[in-house]
Amino acid sequence: MLPVCSKQSRLNIYGNWKSKESGCVTMPEFSKLSSLMKKTSDKVRVPNKVSRRFSLGGKDRRETIIGGLFVTPALVMYAIFVLVPLVLSVYYSFFRWNGITPMTWVGLKNYRTVFEVPDLLATIFNAFKLVLFFSIIPVGLGLIVASVIQRVGSGRFGSITRTVLFLPQVIPLVAAGIIWGWLLALPGLINEVLTAVGLESFTRAWLGDFTWALPSVGMIGVWVLLGFCTVLLSTGITKIDPALYESARIDGASWWNEFLSITVPLLKYEIGVCLTVTVINALSAFDIVYVSTAGGPGNSTAVPGVKIYILAFTEQRIGLASALAVLLMILVLVVVLPLQRLNREEE
C-alpha cells in the first residue's frame, strides 16, 4: 500500500500545483481557439450542415453516441489531470497540511496570510510587471515585424525571418534560462558587447541588480514569445485581401497608415489570441524565472509560480501554496476573461 501512497501524494501535489498553471491556462486558451476555429469553419463550410448535425434524427443520435465515445478518453484524461487536481487544491487551500501528517482545517486563514505577508502579495505585482514584457512588447513588436514582412515580401526573406524568430519556441525554457544566465552575468557576453562599444558604465550583473533583474527576465520572455506572436500574426496577415493594401497604396497611404487602418483592425482576433496566451504566460511564469534568478535578488523577481513551488515543496506548506495557487488562477481568469469578451462582442 505504501509505495502507491507515496506516488499518489506526489502525483496529487504535483498535479495541484501544476493545475494552477496548466489547468487554468488551457481553459481560456482552449475556448478562444475553439471559437476561432468555429468562426473559420463557419465561413469555409456550409453553416447549415453544422447545425443539422445536432438535430435529433435516429442516425444522428447514433453519431452523437459514437462521437461521445471518441471524446471520452480525452475527457477522462482531462478530468484526472486537470479537474481533479483543480478541485483538490481548492480543497487543500482550506487546511494546514505538510503533505504527510493529517490535515487541520483552518478556514480562510491561508488566504488571509497571502494578503498579510508582503512578500507573497509582492509576487502578484511582479507578475503584472512581467505582463509588459511577456505580452505588450512581443505583441507590439510582432505586429510590426509581421507587417514589415508582408510589405517587403513574403518570399525567402519572410520565411527565414519567421523561422529565426520562432526558433526560441523550440528550445526548452530551462536550457534557455541557463544560457541567458551566462549571457547576462557580469563577465558575460552582453556586458562584453557593451564594453566594446564604449558603454562600459552600463555594464552590471543584470540578474543580480534590484532595478534590472525583473526587466532582464522580461527580456528573456520577449525573446521566447516574439516568435510565437510573429508567426501567428503573419499567418493572419496572409488572410487579409491584398486588394485592400493595393488600393491603400494607390491612395498614397504610408506604411504607418496601412498598419493602423488595415493590418491592426483586421488582425484583432489574432491579436486577441496572442494577448491571451502571453498574458497567461506572464502571470503563471515559472521556468524562466526559477532557472535564471530563482526569485532573487531579495524577492525582486519572485512571481507566484516560484513562490508556490517554494511554499509547497521547500516549506511543506501545501495549504498556503494551494491558496496562493487558487488566487493566481482567479487572477488569470479575471484578466483573461475580459480579453475574451472583447473579442466576442465584435463577432
Binding site: 500500500m1 505504501l2 501512497c5 499518489q8 502525483l11 496529487n12 484526472i80 504527510i100 493529517p102 490535515m103
Partner: peptide, 17 residues
C-alpha cells in the same frame, strides 16, 4: 475510472495515521 482513482489522497493519509 476506478483504477485512476487509486491516485487519491484518501490513501495518502493512511501512512500518516
Amino acid at each position: 475510472v476506478v483504477s485512476a482513482c487509486a491516485s487519491s489522497p484518501a490513501t495518502t493519509e493512511a501512512p500518516a495515521a
